[in-house]
Design a protein around this nucleic acid. Structure first.
Lengths: 337, 337
DNA sequence: TTGTAGGCGTTATCAT
DNA sequence: ATGATAACGCCTACAA
């Protein structure tokens, strides 16, 4: 079923069919109707490849992250998909996995295929070769990164100021008299590094305990978080607050702390704070206070940028956007608790 | 940068370039090398649209669900993406949202675009018009459904036998002496209906309490689940076990039950069991036993089917596949507790 | 307002 | 083993 069939059926030329297909104004209502009828009758749908060939676009955006299975990325992808679809873009999803091996292939596949632009969430590309490749690519394809640390001169970057967020959090804890704040984190992505910075700066600024064991890098799992806290307790290292880079870790940490307090018969007083403000924070008992990195805002901005970019609209020179983090208070820590 | 440029650079015809591009055997090693060099030098990458135009495929699979933001679908999409990519397919994601309005557009967009096949997770399409459209579509495009209730004569269906799973669960509870098992559920998708069936059949078979208030349809949220249990408790309706159609609901239900037991100073004895075996079940306190619907197996089967279908390989006549659910035991209920 | 014809970048069928 | 050339289905000057 091609444009020719429609032309024949409607007794017009293919040019006319193409015109009604693209809503050209220069076609009489009568013939327009005639063609429309033919299309309906023959159940015609234009061939996307042929269209893409001349238009050089298929209205597809590549979305890259390490793993949609992770709640955080899932939420991001969900927001992006909805927003982009409302602008009539499809998204093709690319999950690189979280290993450290080169992943250039993922990106080149995407590019060599058809995407009009790429939105990268987090820092799924670790190898330096990958980043170099990305820089190169950004010269020809719009690339928007969300919370990543690639410095792409030609790209656009949207980040949440998690460093400031964690710093403030540490300040709050300090004001409440905490001295020994443990920090559990998993990967040192851009986001991860920022948070760690916020923590160390906060500790230094408020002259809190710098016991090195208070900072622990662990796997992104409940078990690792539990084990880490367990070890700290066994070693009798004083802790009076726990911050983690991810809600999941906070769940594990809090669980272990609570168990310990139960056996030692002490009242629960140690605040536990996670990051990402995911549903996990709500499912924990007690519910977890969490640093919200405003994923919704980040994603909306990304889409907005993407659309204006692809529309060829001129935009301000700004290439870097930053939004503030926000503390979502729940049972595990509140200002007046 | 086209095939013509390469041909010129390498002093061959475009046909030859195309041949090395597609790894045709009938090209001398010497010219092959020459062409390869030219491609490298000019940084050539074939135009996907042109290729798609003649090949009539771009190796893309459409994956449809109501919302990737939901942990369950996120996990499914994650598995599908990884599997399909390993077979060199891209996936374009389509989230329909969970409303009841017609969503034919989502599907037709996908089809009218370029997907080689579609994998539908759950029952994102509710309107009968949509389903009719889907049936029509399945005549021309391979459609594989995972846990959905569309009966597509030309499609393929993969489901988990959750009815049997819940039935067994009820049996276990009955054997343990439970009489009044509450059931909380949200949407009546295919999966939702199956579980409800398993519950009612189990109740009937073991002659347990048929108090209608024990069955409640609620929103998919912690709050709704809490509120539902709260109401039951207030109304003094006896409950000695709770099953929910989703882990999230189980978290809310268990939370309320525990709070109630604490205030009434009763020991915790009411088992709470969720479904989907998600990370939420692990984050709850106590950790939740959950009916695992084997999403991994379902997705793997879907991909396997998809690949053989697209390879044109003949496959057995079987169009419907079914896997057994499995109970993942955790603290909230175990056989010998 | 409508039609003709050339071009988009491949693949594939012929010859040679 | 290689080259010329006709599709593939659409868009878009340019002509009428």
């Amino acid at each position: 079923m091609t444009i020719y069939d429609i032309a024949k059926e409607a007794n017009v030329s293919i040019a006319t069919v193409s015109r009604v297909l693209n809503g050209s104004a220069t076609v009489s209502p009568k013939t327009r109707e005639k063609v429309a009828q033919a299309m309906k009758k023959l159940n015609y749908t234009p061939n996307p490849f042929a269209r893409g060939l001349t238009l050089n676009t298929m209205r597809v955006i590549g979305v890259v992250c390490s793993d949609v299975g992770d709640a955080f990325y899932a939420k991001a992808v969900s927001i992006l998909e909805t927003e982009l679809r409302s602008h009539n873009f499809d998204i093709v999803l690319c999950c690189t996995g979280s290993g450290t091996q080169p992943k250039q292939k993922y990106i080149s596949d995407l590019k060599n295929k058809y995407v009009d632009a790429m939105i990268i969430i987090g820092s799924p590309l670790a190898a330096t070769a990958d980043i170099h490749y990305l820089k190169e690519l950004s010269k020809t394809t719009p690339i928007i990164t969300i919370n990543s640390n690639y410095h792409l001169p030609e790209g656009f970057s949207i980040v949440c100021d998690e460093e400031a967020g964690i710093f403030q959090l540490v300040s709050l804890l300090a004001a409440r008299g905490c001295q020994a704040i443990a920090y559990l984190y998993d990967a040192l992505t851009h986001s991860g590094r920022q948070k760690l910075n916020g923590y160390t700066k906060g500790i230094a600024h408020h002259q809190l305990s710098q016991e090195p064991k208070l900072i622990q890098q662990i796997d992104r799992s409940l078990e690792s978080a539990s084990a880490a806290i367990e070890t700290l307790l066994e070693q009798q290292i004083p802790i009076d607050a726990i911050i983690t880079s991810e809600d999941l870790l906070a769940v594990g940490a809090q669980r272990t702390i609570l168990a310990h307090e139960k056996t030692t018969n002490t009242e629960h007083t140690i605040p536990v704070i996670g990051c990402n403000n995911s549903v996990l924070a709500e499912c924990a008992t007690p519910t977890l206070t969490s640093l919200d990195n405003r994923l919704d805002l980040l994603c909306q901005k990304a889409v907005e940028l993407c659309i204006t970019l692809l529309n060829g609209d001129t935009l301000d020179e700004q290439r870097d956007y930053r939004v503030e983090a926000r503390l979502e208070y729940r049972e595990s820590f509140s200002i007046r608790s």
